[in-house]
Amino acid sequence: MKSKRIIPRSFSGILVFLFLIILVFLIIYPLFWIIISSFKDYQGIYQDVWGLPDEWHFENYTRAWDRGISQYFVNSIIVTIVTLVGVVFVASAASFGIVQLRGKLGNIVFLITMGCMLLSPQVCVLPLFMLLRSLGLNDTYFSMIFPYIAFRLPISIMLIRSFFVGISKELEEAAVIDGASLWTIFSRIYVPLSKPIISTVIIMTVYYAWNEFMFATILVDSSALRTIPVGLMVFRDGLMTEWGVVMAGMVISCIPLIVIYLFMSKSFIRGLTAGSVKG
């Protein structure tokens, strides 16, 4: 949208611009500060809060990696990828099913999906804790993966279904006459045509699974299964005096998402607004 109500290059226009720039500085500065401080040693952080490090302690990063971050990183990758595959597959199949089930039955399934949006993870965490314990899943990756999938499904189905509904029926009818099975129609027509929305779902799911903290800290017992957020907390509590190393660990943990965010910010922001304003 080209803005027509352009303010003249006036004094107030410059003030607004300055305000926005200062705000960027205020919001970004803590992140910048963490990155700078992650190269300092203990003395450096507290004696010279503002300045650049006197000596760049790159070894903070290797130490953080060796002191446990590597294991948390691998766990997070496993949990994120399995969750991602599960969400994309189950959500697109369900959306396809809902679209195929024209009429009442499709509406019922869709209503069930919407109903699940009313259930927040915070309400379900305690009963899930009891459930996973009785299923004996409390010490596996699945104690994170299954709830993650379940709580990402409603929003993902909403997004994918709204896209599927818009796919022209002509292609599908031609394929049916050619004798294509429903599975072929799903995997060869619907999914390939829906790449934009599926990529949005992928980004939102990765973002969620990589950062999720509550389930990961409550539902998992074993320290060997900790994902990055829980690991960082333990890491921080264990290394209270080595702030430089702790901050290096935090920077490492953020790199994957920041990279995805900077390169795919459009999909990122589309997912956010699509999932909320139209929710």
């Binding site: 597959f89 189950v90 959500a91 199949a93 369900a94 396809f96 099913g97 809902i98 679209v99 195929q100 089930l101 039955l105 499709g106 399934v109 069930i112 999906t113 699940c116 299954f146 999938i149 379940a150 499904l153 189905i157 429903l182 799903f186």
Partner: peptide
């Protein structure tokens, strides 16, 4: 179509 929705319904 219903079969496609079953995995999701089980999760729910």
């Amino acid at each position: 179509g219903l079969i496609f929705t079953i995995p999701c319904l089980i999760f729910f």
